[in-house]
Write a protein that binds this DNA or RNA. Structure first.
Length: 418
RNA sequence: CGGGGAGUGGCUCAGUUUGGCUUAGAGCGCUUGGUUUGGGACCAAGAGGUCGUGGGUUCAAGUCCCACCUCCCCGACCA
């Protein structure tokens, strides 16, 4: 992509409203814009990142044996009455009536819908287990949206649901998801903690949260320095490690994933049953597994930035390489930039060419801000020696290479990363 | 909802305390022309504003009074 034709509205200064590092950088780097409190627009760069995260999630979910589907975001309120959650989530649900007076809501979550669906199509133990997932927009009338995309009223979630014959099957699927989640978050380039958590209004017994340590985190995780004990803080009491009695330390975190062993809460309420080998009716055992997809963008930035801007992990970055011709009026410089561009694109890399006119400073600042991991800098001075620079955003390192070996060097660097 | 803060061109803000030298300003960004080009350049000329909204006080309101709206931060909710 050519920068001069791209819609990447970067900002020199962050709007005064933004406080969290990720929020400021998302705005400054031209990735998102707020429409109204808790409601955000994803600009091209932001959408590219969102799509890359979704790709990682799809790959790992598919590999785990889950199947993707797309549930509706409009849901009949009647369905919610069956589980009683129309009351529990009354404040959170965005409700409305259509012209016929039907009571509807925009789905804040999808346990009811998926259970209803499975109920109608699963009747035998032979059809179980089955694991289904979707990546979809959720709508919640949050009490207080904050930190940009971290807590929004409209956000993208990956939610998966497992349906099993018995507890043993549930535990197996739970384990599979647990493993898949670890892979997903690792591939996203973030450090995370896994805590035993409260299942809250979701119901069920066992539940784990995937927590990303970050300054703008809303949750506090307690951890023990001596042993591996980790726990989400629920009540503000003086606590000691239950295993080794060491005083626990606190960390601010962002919750990016939460998995639950639901049991029969929804299947019982909605009558999702099957016939077992003996011909006896049993209730389906469920699990549910969520990832805050859009929120992950913020979590990644919280852990991957410096004072100059974002530092994208290779697998998340909207582009693999940024080409920066220093002098936009020098034909040799620009010609070489375009040559590298087409050769790298031909190799299948995502390339952004900063072909804008203007001074080098602006381009360097924007390059650091949007955080592409590799930067090819082509300038008159180095070119006199037949050299071109390759800059590593994370390491802040500059490698000087012969102008004829730029493409192969870049290819090598990208392969090593992925 | 309770507590704190803020609304002035696209962005950052000054001016509001003490109403009238303000015909509403600055920097950045934008347009045109020119000089520049290795870390947010320079000169010149321009475009861009219902000072959040409505009402009131006054000879006179961005500035004072009342009501409302919006946004941000702290708490309850959660991916």
């Amino acid at each position: 992509m050519f920068w001069s034709k791209a819609f990447i509205p970067t900002l020199k200064e962050a709007p005064q409203d933004a406080e969290a590092a990720s929020h400021k950088l998302l705005l400054r780097a031209g990735m998102i814009r707020m429409l109204t409190s808790g409601v955000y627009i994803y600009l091209p760069l932001g959408l590219m990142v969102l799509n890359r995260i979704e790709t990682i999630i799809r790959e790992e979910m598919d590999a785990s044996g889950a199947q993707e589907l797309l549930l509706s975001c409009i849901q009949p309120l009647e369905l919610w009455k069956k589980t009683g959650r129309d009351q529990q989530l009354a404040e959170t649900m965005i409700r409305f009536q259509d012209r016929r007076g039907r009571n509807l809501c925009l789905g804040p979550t999808h346990e009811e819908v998926i259970t209803e669906l499975v109920k109608n199509h699963v009747s035998s133990y032979r059809q179980l287990p089955v694991v289904l997932y979707q990546i979809q927009t959720k709508f919640r009338d949050e009490i207080r949206p904050r930190f940009g995309i971290i807590r929004a009223c409209e956000f993208v979630m990956k939610d998966a649901y497992s349906f099993d014959r018995d507890q043993k099957g549930l535990e197996k699927n739970y384990e599979v998801m647990f493993t898949a989640y670890k892979k997903i978050f690792t591939r996203c380039g973030i450090k995370f903690l896994i805590t035993e958590a409260d299942s809250g209004i979701m119901g069920g017994s066992v539940s784990h949260e995937f927590m990303v340590p970050a300054q703008s985190g809303e949750d506090i995780v307690l951890f023990c320095k001596k042993c591996d004990f980790v726990k989400t803080l629920t009540e503000d009491k003086e606590q000691k490690c239950p295993r080794c009695n060491t005083p626990l330390e606190k960390k601010q975190t962002i919750e990016v994933g939460h998995i639950f062993q639901l049991g029969t809460k929804y299947s019982k309420a909605l009558g999702a049953c099957f016939l077992d080998e003996k011909g006896e009716q049993q209730t389906i055992i469920m699990g549910c597994y969520g990832i805050g997809v859009s929120r992950l963008i913020s979590a990644i930035i919280e852990q991957n930035h410096d004072e100059d801007g974002i530092i994208w992990p290779e697998d998340i970055s909207p582009f693999d390489v940024l080409i920066l011709p220093v002098q936009s009026s020098n034909e040799e410089v620009v010609g070489l930039a375009k040559k590298y561009y087409s050769e790298l694109e031909k190799k299948g890399f995502r390339v952004l060419l900063d072909d804008r006119e203007g001074t080098a400073g602006v381009k360097f600042k924007d390059a650091d801000l949007i955080g592409i991991p590799l930067r090819v800098t082509i300038g008159e001075k180095n070119l006199q020696k037949g050299e071109v620079e390759i800059g590593l955003r994370r390491e802040k390192k500059i490698i000087t290479v012969d102008k004829n070996s730029v493409v192969s060097k870049i290819a090598g660097l990208i392969k090593k990363g992925s």
